[in-house]
Design a protein around this nucleic acid. Structure first.
Length: 312
DNA sequence: TTGTGTTTTATTGCCTCC
DNA sequence: GGAGGCAATAAAACACAA
């Protein structure tokens, strides 16, 4: 390859006109792109032309001076230059970039044409496209990575929020369950038959008997043998009180919720869903005889009533 | 000026396709 | 088997801080 390149340089040397000047940096790209068959890039520095051998940052000045100024001595020096990489000129790169934007693959005819127009070896054009495709791929992967990262961050944030919410709700369930269990003494197996309006949702269909004639949305828990009691997710009622309840002949325990009290919080919503309605004692048994009362305090101390009050 | 990191050009080896 | 593509890599050119 080295010998080939040197030979190419030498060949090019003979074809270049000594006074040929590179295209001006201010020359519009389109005019370059639509130039005629005579290349505007011939004579600009490149590894093939050995232009600008002396280096310089972005210098487009042709290394090739008129022979009568350089003389044979310098010309001889060209052929003995060790092969060095030459950066393409700004114009050449712009031209190639534009071509790449149109199509990033290079057919043989196009390669030849580009090489001719740019005064480069077809191989150089091919290499440039190859490297350019590699850069393009890297950039695209970086973009993909960024978008995936953003996506992941969003999902992670949502997940963390859900986890926090879950912990909060679980703590609420625990708190409420403890309060309920703390009042088992008051119940002593006597439970108030409560009605419910709009409680159908928390109960599974299999648990509910249709009892709606003339009773609005009153719901009866038809059987203790429901999924609710088997579920490991549900509160466990293996103690004497609840076992007694489950074994009682009258298995229809209906709870009547408050319809006006608005002192609930989000934990209350949970309790509506998770706490079994049959657990509430009769109001008479806990010193509460006014069944027309709308609030669901059920003898719970004043300070706890907020938790037990809700409305629909 | 020099050391160092980055970019660009080019090579090599492997693979696929025709 | 040759041409072309790609990944990995080398090496020169370039940018820039100290």
């Amino acid at each position: 390859m080295v010998a080939g390149t040197v030979f190419s340089a030498a060949s090019n040397l003979t074809t270049l006109l000594p006074n040929q000047t590179p295209p001006s940096a201010s020359q519009p790209l389109d005019s370059l792109f639509h130039s005629s068959s005579s290349s505007p890039f011939l004579g600009s520095r490149s590894i093939v032309s050995f232009g600008d051998v002396q280096g310089g940052k972005g210098c487009n000045e042709s290394f090739f001076l008129p022979y009568d100024e350089n003389g044979d001595e310098d010309t001889d020096e060209y052929f003995h230059q060790p092969e060095k990489k030459r950066r393409l000129s700004v114009e050449q790169v712009q031209f190639l970039e534009k071509s790449f934007d149109e199509e990033n693959k290079l057919e043989p005819e196009r390669k030849i044409r580009l090489a001719k127009e740019l005064g480069l070896q077809p191989r150089q054009v091919a290499i440039w496209f190859q490297n350019r495709r590699a850069r393009w791929k890297t950039k695209r992967m970086e973009k993909d990575y960024d978008s995936l990262q953003a996506c992941y961050n969003d999902l992670k944030a949502s997940y963390d929020d859900l986890l926090r919410e879950k912990d909060k709700l679980q703590a609420e369930v625990t708190k409420l369950s403890e309060k309920v269990l703390g009042r088992e003494e008051l119940e002593e197996g006597k439970f108030y038959r409560v009605e419910t309006k709009g409680f159908e949702e928390p109960l599974q269909k299999s648990m509910i008997d249709s009892t709606s004639e003339g009773e609005g949305s009153k719901v009866h828990i038809s059987s203790a043998k429901s999924d609710m009691f088997d579920s490991s997710e549900s509160p466990r009622y293996t103690d004497g009180v609840h076992s007694a309840l489950l074994e009682t002949g009258d298995s229809s325990y209906v709870f009547e919720p408050d319809q006006s009290d608005v002192s609930q919080d989000e934990g209350d919503n949970l309790s509506k869903t998770l706490l079994p309605h049959y657990m509430f004692p009769k109001l008479e048994d806990v010193g509460y005889s006014d069944q027309s009362h709308n609030s669901c305090h059920f003898g719970i101390p004043e300070e706890d009533q907020a938790i037990w009050s809700w409305s629909y």
